[in-house]
């Protein structure tokens, strides 16, 4: 049970961490000062969540584990984030698209986790939900702006959505760990999230004049640690200091 709870915390924390990492790559390079500051703020919020999840994960794991050993000292196959969040910052439309699809999943997830039987998870969700609400508002407004902006921005936004959409199915495909956590009243019921997600997508895309892609889902399994070729490069940066200078205090 402890091991499964630990794995579930990794799933939650890794999504926030890898998305936070992608956003942090943009810091100082945004299309305007305001969006730069806002996206860095998203990254900060996500890393704040990561710290809460991983402090708890370290406690569950016991022994010498710390938030940093959980974050930095795992092998690639042990990271359990979904494939959506590791997609690169191809352009601002991809950044916004990735953020919107994640936020539309994340907010209803946190709403359920606030009711978790696990008090720590419930507390982390209660704290994170205000951030997630703001993130969804921000990303929705940008999907609308880009979708219903110029011809160029419309095309770019639709292209980004077409690229990202095949990765959303994984968010709702229940793994054995998620099933068990749901049954114990610790984790969320993904089918309920899916309803909320679909509604949100419909509403925002209609206003953004975007089409919901009818593209088959991709065979991806980030939640069991099988990632894209991007992931090795993400980890090479993320883990660089901890790997190059092992066992030191920073």
């Amino acid at each position: 049970m402890k091991e499964k709870l630990y794995q579930y915390l990794l799933m939650l924390g890794d999504n926030s961490m890898i998305l936070g990492h992608r956003l942090s790559e943009l810091c100082g390079h945004g299309p305007s000062l305001e969006t730069d500051i806002a996206l860095t703020n998203h990254s900060l919020d996500l890393f704040g969540q990561v710290r809460s999840y991983f402090q708890y994960a370290a406690e569950v794991k016991g022994g010498e584990a710390t938030e940093d050993s959980v974050a930095f000292l795992r092998y690639e196959r042990d990271y359990l984030n979904t494939i959506l969040v590791e997609q690169p910052n191809t352009d601002f439309a991809h950044v916004i698209g990735r953020q919107f699809l994640f936020d539309a999943y994340h907010l209803p997830l946190l709403e359920q986790l606030m009711e978790s039987n696990d008090e720590t998870i419930a507390a982390i969700a209660a704290k994170s939900i205000k951030e997630s609400r703001y993130h969804l508002r921000f990303s929705s407004s940008w999907v609308k702006r880009l979708g219903d902006g110029t011809d160029e921005s419309h095309q770019k936004m639709q292209a980004a959505i077409n690229h990202l959409f095949p990765f959303i199915h994984e968010l709702f495909r229940e793994t054995p760990i998620e099933k068990e956590m749901k049954e114990l009243g610790i984790g969320a019921d993904l089918s309920l999230i899916k309803e909320r997600f679909d509604e949100k997508i419909k509403e925002v895309f209609a206003e953004a004049t975007l089409e919901i892609p009818q593209i088959p889902s991709r065979q991806v399994n980030g939640k069991i640690g099988i990632h894209t070729e991007q992931m090795g490069f993400i980890l090479a940066e993320l883990q660089y200091m901890q790997r190059a200078y092992p066992n030191m205090t920073w």
């Binding site: 969006t35 702006r145 219903d148 110029t150 160029e152």
Partner: peptide, 13 residues
């Protein structure tokens, strides 16, 4: 790289 984003925001508003 941000030019099209700023133009889109303006067009949308």
């Amino acid at each position: 790289n941000g030019a099209w984003v700023r133009e889109a925001a303006l067009a949308h508003s």
